[in-house]
Amino acid sequence: MTTTQFQRVSGDAAVPAELRGGVVAIGNFDGVHRGHQAVLQRALEEAARRGVPALVLTFEPHPRTVFRPDVPLFILTPPAVKARLLARLGFDAVVEQPFTREFAGQSAEEFVTRILDRNLGISHAVTGFDFHFGKNRQGGPAFLMQSGERHGFAVTLVDPFRDEGAEIVSSSRIRVLLREGDVVQAAGLLGYRFTVEETVVRGKQLGRTLGFPTANMKLADTTELKHGIYAVRLRRANGTLHDGVASFGRRPTVDEHGVTLLETFVFDFSGDLYGETCEVSFFGYLRGEERFDGLDALTAQMKRDEAEAKALLSGVRPLSELDARIAF
């Protein structure tokens, strides 16, 4: 691995000279979960062994949104979040290949020749055992290995990763858990606490009048995290971490028909976060959204939520090195 600053590169162009000859991990990697990390770690190890750059080739937008645009897809890690996770894992760059129907229509050989050989100039490819590519998914593991021999790069295939219950870890399983609000089990599959990143926007500032000023974020419309109250940690752009309690939903007591917002009350903080891009990591689901009979009842419940979140967060420990880099 090189010592260059992490880069996000468009797949439409050749990578910078200092990134050529590297090891590339190929896949969508939505979630960058423990199954993905098995592939990614093999790529990092191979790059370190060879003394070459470690890259990730991913596809944006997610291919499912191109082939089935009428079916919303809960994206676990939008491009910026995915890039930050890959940087924290130790990669030198992520190559974000624009995914279109035209791109999907190229042959498997065109993909190898144009993307892997010409654009990236790779020395080694690492991917999952079931990776398919090219028109009608004509390219598979055997084809990739044969093409690698012709183009001068080696290929490593990684078997599916299974959790402690012998089930394959998948993005689909994690989406189901997050829809149920089970951020604890989701973290067990991710290997880190589920984390979102957005710019803090101005709200109606009702929380400030109640003694609970919040940092408000508008998440992507496809975010299907269960509405409710969560114990969280917020990381500012300057890297500082703050415990907090967050509400994700429509605020039925005060603004039932408003837009869905993530509103984070940051403990022991009095600064201004407006316009700042922050991360929020979810540690526990406290309760569902409720409608209260007036602001006094709402305020009393918010104080109880604060106490519960502080108690939960006081005992948490990192799940992995990646988790430690995100939320500790």
Rank of each mutant, 00 (worst) to 15 (best):
V9Y: 03
S10P: 00
G11R: 02
D12I: 14
A13K: 13
A13L: 13
V15G: 14
V15H: 08
E18A: 15
R20F: 00
G27P: 02
F29I: 09
F29D: 09
G31H: 03
G31I: 08
Q37A: 14
A38V: 03
V39N: 06
Q41T: 15
R42K: 14
R42L: 04
E46I: 08
R49Q: 08
R50A: 11
P53V: 03
P53H: 06
L55N: 13
L55G: 15
L57W: 05
L57H: 07
F59Q: 04
P61Q: 02
P61I: 03
P61N: 01
H62P: 01
H62W: 02
R64P: 00
T65K: 03
V66T: 04
V66N: 00
V66F: 01
F67C: 05
R68L: 14
R68W: 09
P69T: 09
D70Q: 15
V71G: 04
V71M: 08
L73V: 12
P78A: 08
P79H: 08
A80Y: 01
V81M: 15
K82R: 14
L86Q: 11
F91W: 08
V95H: 02
R101L: 15
E102P: 03
E102G: 12
F103G: 05
F103H: 14
A104F: 04
Q106N: 07
A125S: 12
F129I: 11
F131A: 02
G134T: 06
G134M: 07
G134S: 06
K135H: 14
K135W: 08
N136A: 13
N136V: 01
N136C: 01
R137N: 05
G140E: 14
F143V: 11
F143G: 00
L144R: 02
Q146R: 05
S147Y: 05
G148D: 14
E149M: 04
E149L: 09
R150K: 11
H151E: 15
